[in-house]
Amino acid sequence: MFKRSLIILGTVVLLQGCAAAVVAGTASAVTAANDRRTIGSQIDDNNIEIKASIAISEVERLEKSARVNAISVNGIVLLVGQVANQEMKNEAQITVEAIAGIRKIHNQLRIGSNIGITTQTHDSWLTSKVKAQLLAAKDISSNNIKVVTENAEVYLMGLVSQDEANRAVDIARNVSGVERVVKVFEYIN
């Protein structure tokens, strides 16, 4: 509690009255403090995602004709998006594998045309609906579950117990519009 108070006070002092920034910063600090990952692991995951995005953008054909997103939780990376063929799918994975700190990659890239803005918007809406349902559930810690939606497929990531994983999957499956739920969890005791 003392640590959280210091973070909030420091944020307020540094931002000198910018209410929106204070609220956002406080929410981020509280979320970070309640995450089962260490602060160092959270920073590492952020760095992995940035490095993956840069590495993929440096591969000309992936940059031009593919849509690849890398999401990292505790060094476990999920690749989602669309590529034109199996060769490009493999190339995206090899490109990301070169990044330090990655423990495992789940390559869920789909071969096909890139999804459009309408589908991306619908995916954002589905993610919000799943997160809201997880937040409302009393028997799981939604702060420890990352929700990623790609073309109506919901991917659930995080450090969770087996019971939390099963409950989260059940919640996500019952959200209208979700076509498939994929577990990318790391299990704790």
Rank of each mutant, 00 (worst) to 15 (best):
N114E: 00
A32H: 01
T121Y: 00
D45Y: 06
M88D: 15
V96Y: 04
G116H: 01
Q42W: 01
N107P: 01
G116M: 01
V83Q: 09
H122E: 10
T38A: 05
I76A: 08
G101C: 10
V80T: 11
I94C: 08
V83P: 03
D123I: 01
I102T: 10
G40Y: 06
L78W: 06
G75H: 03
T119K: 00
Q42C: 04
S41F: 03
N34G: 04
Q86S: 13
R67K: 13
N74Q: 05
A70R: 03
R61N: 14
S57V: 08
N69S: 15
E97L: 13
A55T: 11
I102M: 01
Q120H: 07
Q86E: 15
Q120N: 05
R61T: 14
Q108I: 10
S41T: 11
A70P: 08
Q93R: 12
V83E: 04
R61Y: 14
E49Q: 12
N74Y: 04
A100I: 11
K64D: 13
G116N: 08
R110I: 08
R110T: 10
S72G: 09
T95I: 08
H122W: 08
R37Q: 00
T118C: 08
T95A: 06
Q86V: 13
A32W: 02
I115Q: 00
R36F: 09
R67L: 00
S57C: 11
I54G: 10
T118G: 12
N74W: 04
N69C: 07
R103C: 08
I43E: 13
A84Y: 04
L79F: 04
V68F: 02
